[in-house]
Simulated assay, not measured.
Amino acid sequence: MHNASIVSIVDDDESVRLATASLIRSLGWCVKIYASAEAFLRSPEFEQTACVVCDIQMPGMTGLEMQAQLVASGNRLPIIFVTAFPSDAARRRANENGAYFFLHKPVDAAEFTRCLQSILGSEQTQ
């Protein structure tokens, strides 16, 4: 596993969380999953997160609202947004606040892997 490189998945869809977590673990990274933005923001692993994979549309706080809260507090965590409902407005807002990638569901595993590797690096510890 990578040292202190937790990838946090924030998505209200359990099947998406589990499938994404499985892929990320297969690449050698530690994964934590959260059903909501609120749960992620109050988690003890928040400070150890190296990258966030986040849905845009969720009940309660949306992914974009979570990103805005992070930016307002001075935290610029790398975020990969994934959404089943892409829109130009959402993409623009995400990009304005520093999103690294904006992917459409279902996400292509190879493309997703390239995104993660560009953020976290491709070397894995054995």
Rank of each mutant, 00 (worst) to 15 (best):
K32S: 13
Y100H: 03
T113S: 08
G121C: 07
L18W: 02
N97F: 09
Q126Y: 05
L41M: 14
Q126I: 06
P86E: 11
N3R: 02
R114N: 00
L116R: 02
A50L: 12
V107K: 09
I33N: 06
T20R: 01
L23P: 08
F102Y: 15
A109L: 09
S22W: 02
D11P: 09
A99Q: 01
N97D: 10
H104R: 10
H104F: 04
L77V: 13
F112H: 15
C51E: 01
S73E: 14
E14S: 01
R42E: 14
Y100L: 11
F81K: 01
T83P: 00
R93S: 12
A90E: 01
A50R: 13
L116C: 09
V52R: 01
E47R: 12
R25E: 14
F46S: 03
P59E: 02
F85V: 11
A68C: 05
I9K: 04
S8D: 00
R42L: 08
I24N: 01
I33M: 14
I79A: 05
Q117L: 08
T62E: 00
G74V: 06
I6Q: 03
R91N: 01
L120Q: 05
T49E: 07
I56T: 04
T62N: 05
P59D: 01
P59G: 14
I24T: 10
E47D: 13
S15N: 11
Q69R: 15
R93H: 13
H2F: 13
G74H: 11
I80G: 04
D108S: 11
I6F: 12
R17A: 11
A90M: 05
G74L: 09
Q69A: 15
V52T: 02
F102H: 02
